[in-house]
């Protein structure tokens, strides 16, 4: 039997908001360690990797490993039926055809159950090599979302340049150009507002704005985002999910032939 309970269903609601732009279906791998998902978008330009650790759940039981293929739009519809204050429980039997979502109101006077059919997916699983990145930037996630939104008005692609001075985002298009520079913040008491650059070598990479704008749908999950970059390899855009796990987006760069 598989059973995973989260008092704060809002976390799962936010996770679905964070993946539904990119994925239409995905396999949720459930084991003793927790719930993992790895899936590419339809165009195979980006990859989403989600990890929810079992010890982050309020109750977790997984008697045998399960791979559950789910329709992301359907799951998203179901989670929109939960109130943010509700507790959510995911439940499935061994060799399941369906998964059940149970939402309980705080005083347990309303209990809703939604059963969703599972789908068979033949998904390609990619091994992501351990990489030491040339630049790792931590910055406020809202600021990153704002910059992606603002710069995507100027062009389809955005260049991210990172040096020891800070991080620079730029876009160019028919209307003109846009540049946003963020300096590293000094020692600040408010870690949520900090911009921190750890740099081994300066990096300059170009990425599709459309994908970055999908990644920033994860902004409500965490006040800070971490961007890891090295020359000519995918960007990693990472959001911590409270004490339970993280979501990482990998985005293939645009490279000159």
């Amino acid at each position: 039997m598989f059973e995973a309970r989260l008092v704060q269903s809002v976390i799962l609601k936010k996770v679905l908001e964070a993946i539904k732009d990119l994925l239409t279906e995905a396999t949720f791998e459930c084991s003793d360690c927790g719930i993992q998902l790895q899936a590419m978008d339809n165009a195979h330009v980006s990859l989403v990797s989600l990890n929810l650790r079992s010890d982050g759940f309020d109750k977790y039981r997984c008697d045998r490993n399960l791979s559950m293929g789910m329709s992301v739009p359907c799951m998203s519809k179901i989670l929109r039926c939960a109130s943010s204050e509700d507790t959510v429980t995911l439940r499935a039997w061994d060799n399941p055809d369906t998964i059940v979502f149970v939402f309980e109101s705080p005083n347990r006077d309303k209990i809703s159950e939604y059963e969703m059919k599972l789908i068979n997916l033949d998904q390609e699983h990619l091994g992501i090599p351990e990489t030491l990145y040339s630049c790792v930037v931590k910055m406020p996630s809202q600021e990153f979302a704002r910059i992606c939104r603002d710069l995507s008005q100027f062009g389809d692609a955005m260049t991210i340049a990172c040096s020891k001075e800070g991080i620079k985002f730029s876009a160019a298009g028919d209307y003109g150009t846009a540049n946003v520079k963020l300096a590293q913040t000094a020692e600040t008491e408010n870690q949520e507002e900090a911009v921190v650059v750890e740099m081994k070598e300066p990096v300059k990479l170009t990425f599709s704005c459309r994908y970055l704008n999908s990644f920033v749908k994860a902004t409500p999950l965490c006040a800070q985002v971490q961007l890891s970059m090295s020359a000519e390899v995918p960007l990693v855009c990472e959001y911590q999910i409270g004490e339970i796990g993280h979501i990482r987006y990998y985005l293939a760069p645009k490279i000159d032939d």
Binding site: H44, I128, P234, L251, D256, D257
Partner: peptide
């Protein structure tokens, strides 16, 4: 213009 790469060019298939 730079060309968009596919993500699996960078990762190993399991």
């Amino acid at each position: 213009a730079p060309k968009q790469r596919k993500i699996r060019q960078f990762f190993v298939k399991w």
